[in-house]
Amino acid sequence: MKTKLTNLAKGVLSERVPEAKYPSLMQQLEEARKEWLNAQNYYNNVSDTDLVDYAAYLIQASEKKYNYLLKRARHEGLEYSPFN
């Protein structure tokens, strides 16, 4: 019984787990910039007071995400311009 469990564990542990595919930093930056612009657009088009508060928080969150990714890109020596 112990041998069967050991063999089973070895088989499970030896299987390759596929690597997760994440978007590149440049793709993440562009997506974050679009999210920020969309949040600003949403804020400009909403009228309900509760939704205005939500839109303001959405702008702040997306701006912080974009700034974080910009800092990361600078730290890694990447040059990014949304106007390319």
Rank of each mutant, 00 (worst) to 15 (best):
E79H: 15
M1P: 09
H75V: 06
L58V: 02
R72V: 06
A9K: 13
K21V: 15
K4M: 05
M1G: 11
E76W: 03
L70E: 02
L29A: 02
T6N: 14
Y66M: 07
T6K: 04
S14M: 02
Q40E: 15
T49C: 07
W36F: 11
E31G: 14
E76G: 11
K10Y: 14
P82R: 03
A39Y: 07
S81F: 12
G77P: 01
V46G: 00
S62H: 02
K21L: 08
E79A: 08
E79S: 11
L78W: 10
N84D: 09
P23K: 01
N44K: 13
L69G: 01
A56Y: 10
L78M: 10
I59V: 14
N67K: 05
T3D: 04
S62F: 14
V12N: 02
R74W: 06
N41P: 12
N45R: 06
N44T: 08
K64I: 09
L78A: 13
D53S: 15
Y66Q: 07
K65D: 06
D48M: 02
Y22F: 09
K65L: 10
K21S: 12
N7G: 04
K21A: 15
N38E: 13
L25Q: 00
D53N: 05
A39M: 04
R33F: 08
Y66N: 01
A61V: 07
N45E: 01
E15M: 09
N84C: 15
P23S: 03
N84W: 13
N7W: 06
N38H: 13
T6H: 05
L37K: 05
L58D: 11
L70Q: 06
L25N: 00
R33A: 11
N41D: 12
K34C: 07
L8S: 08
L29C: 01
N67V: 14
R72G: 06
E15C: 12
L25F: 02
H75K: 08
V46H: 08
V52D: 06
E63G: 03
D53Q: 05
D50Y: 15
D50I: 10
M1V: 03
D50N: 14
A61H: 11
G11L: 08
A61W: 09
M26E: 06
L25W: 00
A56H: 08
A55H: 09
T3P: 00
S81E: 10
K34H: 13
V52Y: 02
Y80V: 01
E31W: 08
R72A: 14
L37S: 03
L51V: 15
Y66I: 07
S14A: 12
V12C: 04
E15I: 05
H75N: 07
L78F: 15
N44S: 09
S81V: 13
L37H: 07
P82K: 13
M1K: 05
Y80K: 02
Q27P: 14
G11P: 00
T3H: 12
L37F: 13
N44W: 09
E15H: 12
L70H: 03
E79R: 04
P82H: 11
K4G: 09
N44V: 14
R72F: 08
K34L: 11
L58M: 12
V17P: 04
Y66C: 04
K21W: 05
N38L: 14
Y57M: 08
L25G: 01
D48Y: 13
A56S: 10
N7Q: 03
A55I: 00
E63R: 02
Q27K: 12
P23W: 07
E35A: 15
